[in-house]
Design a protein around this nucleic acid. Structure first.
Length: 570
RNA sequence: CGGAGAGUAACUCAGUCUGGUAGAGUGCCUGCUUUGGGAGCAGGACGUCGCAGGUUCGAAUCCUGUCUCUCCGACCA
């Protein structure tokens, strides 16, 4: 196509409201424009790249045996009530009413919808396994949309749903999708990593997120330095160094005065000890009953883990704490408490610790966890930190940031039971199908590509998702010979299936080169009078420093070779 | 929703403290010159100063309210 016939509004200056590099470049290269917070128009170039990502996704889904469907974006409220998610997701959904005053929601995801379909259409084990996917706009009333396409109120997602006869079979389907995801991100030119993740509102037993490591990422990841383990911080398990024995391990409990020291740091300073020698005792209320949660003094509670152990638990109010411990906030300790005590597993074997004395302005030292108290349960409830030992005992955890571009879940029978998606097995017995769901943020993936691949001049597109594969920069569009050569080469290459953009604008060369680098198409062919005088044109990859002069007669062949090689490299 | 900041030309911003003719650069239009890394000259078009109210002889500027956008936290592909 000709540049002069496309809307490619490049910007010399960086728009004010774009913070991260990929967002800035998407605006500057004329890929997208904002309508409102979290709402973007894809301009011709942006749409071309988006389509390429979609096609890669489509090819790999088809290859993995999934069938494409397209479900409505607008759903009756009732179907969401069946799964119970109308309540849990309420605030995150856009809700609308029709003229009959019927309540509808704009779909944030489609587990309920596909399961409803499957409950009607899939009735026999002979029809399983099956896997349906769609590529569609999703609507979520995000608390805070940000970073352009990274988090929008409306975004394009590929969502797939598998149904199987058993959880073993479901594991197979999960594996297939997992492998397809690895291929998809690789083909998009992304360096993705899969990490253990929390299932959140989706429910189910386990999940992996596909993360693109980059500093602008919204998620924190902990990865073992030998690469043997990686997890979202929300989910990560880490071990502090064991055993936890400190000075005074053999001595009896001894009360010490700690006036005005209701904070871990203050006590540690006063007693001249490390914070990890202290035991943090937090009083929670779950099911209207108080529970004590014990952690090393230098650790914090992972709310997600805690919520799994004590659903709905919230930190107790000061009055409750006074009632339970008989002391002001800050002096709680496990000795003498009459409520259940759960302890983080890293405290196992603690000797010589310091705890609150359940008395204002006093602590105990020489605390021995096994000797001095009885723990109801040891659990993993602490937030993991960089520097912890990985759960497999190999390697130390290192923190990274990442963009979540995909998430695969094993859902079990949560939705199939709620919506009655059961089938008859070989014995004529009715069973709920075992489900999995698999999402890719297609529009987010597109931006992640740019976030991961750019330099100070602009985008560096991987050829698989570049809006065009080749840019022909015609330096003298008014010169008939230049234009004729450019047109000929373009025609030949287009006939061979190469996506060609020809910069035929009447602009000065420097201006066009700057735009070329900003757009970042993988290969550039420069045709100018100066080169043509020697019968040459110039070929340069976006990643090359210098161009290569080639005879104009060989240009089309040479470009096709290069493009083919670039395609094959992905 | 809590915290921080910003709304003035298509874009980047000055002007607001200390009220008195609406500004610059970039971009856009016309012409001439120029033509291998964001050219030069000349001319030109473009503003309800986010919106509403108030104070004042007079408001972009002061006051009140309100809306929008961006950033930091909880949500998530």
């Amino acid at each position: 196509m000709r540049w002069s016939e496309l809307l490619i509004p490049t910007l010399k200056e960086t728009p004010q409201d774009a913070e991260i590099i990929s967002h800035q470049l998407m605006l500057r290269a004329g890929l997208i424009r904002r309508l409102g917070s979290g709402l973007y128009t894809y301009l011709p170039l942006g749409l071309r790249s988006l389509r390429k990502v979609q096609n890669i996704v489509r090819e790999e889904m088809d290859r993995a045996g999934a069938q494409e469907v397209l479900m409505p974006a607008m759903h009756p409220k009732e179907i969401w009530e069946k799964s119970g998610r109308y309540e849990t997701l309420k605030n995150g959904m856009f809700r609308v009413t029709d003229r009959q005053n019927r309540e509808m929601v704009l779909g944030p995801t489609h587990e309920e919808i596909i399961t409803d379909l499957v409950s009607r259409e899939i009735t026999s084990y002979k029809q399983l396994p099956c896997n349906f996917y769609q590529i569609q706009t999703k609507f979520r009333d995000e608390i805070r949309p940000r970073f352009g396409l990274m988090r929008g109120k409306e975004f394009i997602m590929k969502d797939a749903y598998s149904f199987d006869v058993s959880s073993e079979a479901a594991d197979e389907s999960y594996k297939k999708m997992y492998d397809a995801y690895v291929r998809i991100f690789k083909r998009c030119g992304l360096h993705a990593m899969a990490v253990d993740a929390d299932t959140g509102d989706m429910g189910g037993s386990s999940s992996h997120e596909f993360m693109i490591p980059c500093d602008a990422g919204e998620d924190a990841i902990l990865e073992a330095d030998d690469g043997s383990y990686a997890a979202n911080l929300e989910r990560a398990e880490g071990f502090c160094d064991l055993p936890m024995e400190f000075e005074g391990a053999e001595l009896a409990l001894e009360k010490v005065a700690t006036p005005h020291s209701g904070k871990i740091e203050a006590v540690a300073n006063m007693l001249k000890i490390e914070t990890r020698q202290l035991v943090k005792t937090l009083i929670y209320v779950a099911d209207e009953k108080p529970v004590a949660v014990l952690l090393p003094g230098n650790r914090d509670v992972n709310d997600i883990k805690l919520n799994k152990i004590l659903p709905g638990a919230e930190l107790a109010d000061p009055e409750v704490i006074r009632e339970v411990t008989g002391a002001e906030v800050g002096f709680a300790g496990p000795v003498g408490l009459e409520i259940p005590i759960i302890a983080d597993r890293s405290l196992q074997g603690l000797k010589g610790g310091v705890i609150g004395a359940n008395e204002t302005d006093a602590h105990f030292k020489n605390f021995d966890l096994e000797r001095d108290t009885s723990i109801t349960e040891f659990v993993d409830v602490a937030l993991a930190y960089a520097g912890d030992l990985a759960p497999n005992g190999k390697g130390r955890l290192v923190e990274k940031r990442g963009v979540e571009v995909g998430h695969v879940f094993k859902l079990g029978t949560k939705y199939t039971e709620a919506l009655g998606a059961s089938f008859l097995d070989e014995n004529g017995k009715s069973q709920p199908a075992v489900m999995g769901c698999y999402g890719i943020g297609v529009s987010r993936t597109l931006q992640a590509v740019i976030e991961q691949s750019n330099d100070k001049f602009g985008i560096i597109w991987p050829i698989s998702v570049a809006p065009f594969e080749l840019l022909i920069t015609v330096l003298s569009p008014k010169d008939q010979t230049c234009m004729q050569h450019a047109d000929d080469i373009k025609t030949i290459l287009e006939a061979q299936g190469v996506d060609v953009l020809m910069d035929d604008r009447e602009e000065r060369p420097g201006f066009k080169f700057k735009d070329a680098d900003l757009l970042g198409l993988p290969l550039r062919l420069t045709i100018g009078e100066r080169g043509l005088a020697k019968g040459e044109v110039e070929l340069k990859a976006r990643t090359d420093k210098d161009f290569e002069a080639i005879p104009v007669a060989d240009a089309a062949v040479k470009v096709f070779e290069k493009i083919t090689a670039m395609r094959e490299a992905l």
